[in-house]
Measured scan of single mutants.
Amino acid sequence: GQVNVNNTTYTFPTPKLAKEFAQKAAKKYNLTVHVSGNTVTVK
C-alpha cells in the first residue's frame, strides 16, 4: 500500500500497515485520511 503525506509517498508491504501509518499521520498533523483504490492520501 502507498501513503501520500505532504507530497511525500511512503510504500508499505501490506495495505494494513499503510492504513495504520496513515491514521497515525492524520492524527499527528490533524489531517484527514482519503482512500482511493490502493493509495491513501493524508491531507
Results as ranks from 00 to 15, higher is better:
Gly1Asp: 11
Gln2Ala: 12
Gln2Lys: 10
Gln2Tyr: 10
Gln2Trp: 11
Gln2Met: 12
Gln2Glu: 10
Gln2Ile: 12
Gln2Pro: 12
Val3Asp: 11
Val3Thr: 12
Val3Arg: 07
Val3Trp: 07
Val3Phe: 10
Val3Tyr: 07
Val3Asn: 11
Asn4Arg: 09
Asn4Trp: 09
Asn4Lys: 10
Asn4Phe: 10
Asn4Gly: 12
Asn4Tyr: 06
Asn4Ser: 12
Val5Ala: 11
Val5Thr: 11
Val5Phe: 13
Val5Gly: 13
Val5Glu: 11
Val5Ser: 12
Val5Asp: 11
Asn6His: 15
Asn6Arg: 14
Asn6Tyr: 15
Asn6Glu: 10
Asn6Phe: 15
Asn6Asp: 09
Asn6Trp: 15
Asn6Gly: 12
Asn7Glu: 15
Asn7Asp: 11
Asn7Thr: 15
Asn7Met: 15
Asn7Ala: 14
Asn7Lys: 13
Thr8Phe: 15
Thr8Lys: 14
Thr8Met: 12
Thr8Gly: 07
Thr8Ser: 08
Thr8Asn: 08
Thr9Leu: 07
Thr9Val: 13
Thr9Asp: 03
Thr9Glu: 05
Thr9Gln: 07
Thr9Met: 09
Thr9Phe: 07
Tyr10Ser: 01
Tyr10Asn: 01
Tyr10Pro: 00
Tyr10Val: 03
Thr11Ile: 13
Thr11Tyr: 13
Thr11Ala: 05
Thr11Ser: 06
Thr11Arg: 08
Thr11Leu: 06
Phe12Leu: 03
Phe12Asn: 00
Phe12Met: 02
Phe12Gly: 00
Phe12Lys: 00
Phe12Trp: 02
Phe12Val: 00
Phe12Arg: 00
Phe12Ala: 01
Pro13Leu: 10
Pro13Gln: 09
Pro13Lys: 13
Pro13Trp: 05
Thr14Asn: 11
Thr14Lys: 02
Thr14Leu: 03
Thr14His: 04
Thr14Pro: 01
Thr14Ala: 02
Thr14Gln: 02
Thr14Tyr: 03
Thr14Val: 02
Pro15Phe: 11
Pro15Arg: 09
Pro15Asp: 08
Lys16Asn: 07
Lys16Ser: 08
Lys16Arg: 10
Lys16Ile: 08
Lys16Pro: 02
Lys16Trp: 08
Leu17Cys: 13
Leu17Tyr: 04
Leu17Gln: 10
Leu17Thr: 04
Leu17Phe: 04
Leu17Arg: 06
Leu17Gly: 04
Ala18Asp: 00
Ala18Arg: 00
Ala18Trp: 02
Ala18Asn: 00
Ala18Val: 01
Ala18Glu: 00
Ala18His: 00
Ala18Pro: 00
Ala18Ile: 01
Ala18Gly: 01
Ala18Tyr: 00
Lys19Tyr: 13
Lys19Ser: 07
Lys19Arg: 14
Lys19Phe: 12
Glu20Val: 09
Glu20Pro: 00
Glu20Phe: 10
Phe21Pro: 00
Phe21Thr: 01
Phe21Gln: 01
Phe21Gly: 01
Phe21Asp: 00
Phe21Lys: 01
Phe21Met: 02
Ala22Lys: 02
Ala22Gly: 04
Ala22Thr: 01
Ala22Met: 03
Ala22Leu: 02
Ala22Tyr: 02
Ala22Asp: 00
Ala22Glu: 02
Ala22His: 01
Gln23Phe: 11
Gln23Val: 12
Gln23Pro: 00
Gln23Met: 13
Gln23Thr: 10
Gln23Ser: 09
Gln23Gly: 05
Gln23Ile: 13
Gln23Glu: 13
Lys24Ile: 14
Lys24His: 10
Lys24Tyr: 15
Lys24Leu: 14
Lys24Gln: 10
Lys24Asp: 04
Ala25Cys: 15
Ala25Met: 15
Ala25Gly: 02
Ala25Asp: 01
Ala25Ser: 04
Ala25Glu: 03
Ala25Arg: 03
Ala25Thr: 10
Ala25Tyr: 15
Ala25Val: 15
Ala25Asn: 03
Ala25Phe: 15
Ala25Pro: 00
Ala25His: 06
Ala26Ile: 11
Ala26Tyr: 07
Ala26Asn: 05
Ala26Thr: 08
Lys27His: 07
Lys27Thr: 08
Lys27Val: 07
Lys28Arg: 11
Lys28Ser: 05
Lys28Ala: 06
Lys28Trp: 14
Tyr29Phe: 08
Tyr29Arg: 05
Tyr29Asn: 04
Tyr29His: 06
Tyr29Trp: 13
Asn30Ala: 06
Asn30Arg: 08
Asn30Asp: 05
Asn30Val: 03
Asn30Met: 07
Asn30Pro: 03
Leu31His: 07
Leu31Ser: 04
Leu31Asp: 03
Leu31Val: 12
Thr32Trp: 07
Thr32Glu: 11
Thr32Lys: 08
Thr32Pro: 05
Thr32Cys: 13
Thr32Asp: 08
Thr32Asn: 08
Thr32His: 08
Val33Glu: 00
Val33Tyr: 07
Val33Arg: 00
Val33Gly: 01
His34Gly: 04
His34Trp: 14
His34Gln: 10
His34Tyr: 14
His34Asn: 07
His34Glu: 13
Val35Tyr: 04
Val35Ala: 03
Val35Ser: 02
Val35Leu: 09
Val35Gln: 05
Val35Arg: 06
Val35Glu: 02
Val35Phe: 03
Ser36Phe: 10
Ser36Arg: 09
Gly37Glu: 04
Gly37Phe: 05
Gly37Ala: 04
Gly37His: 04
Gly37Thr: 02
Asn38Val: 09
Asn38Pro: 03
Asn38Gly: 03
Asn38Asp: 03
Asn38Ala: 06
Asn38Tyr: 04
Thr39Ala: 05
Thr39Ile: 10
Thr39Glu: 05
Thr39Pro: 00
Thr39Asp: 03
Thr39Arg: 08
Val40Pro: 00
Val40Ser: 01
Val40Gly: 00
Val40His: 01
Val40Thr: 01
Val40Gln: 00
Thr41Glu: 05
Thr41Val: 10
Thr41Ser: 05
Thr41Ala: 04
Thr41Gly: 02
Thr41Trp: 08
Val42Met: 05
Val42Phe: 09
Val42His: 01
Val42Asp: 00
Lys43Ile: 15
Lys43Arg: 12
Lys43Tyr: 15
Lys43Asp: 07
Lys43Leu: 15
Lys43Met: 15
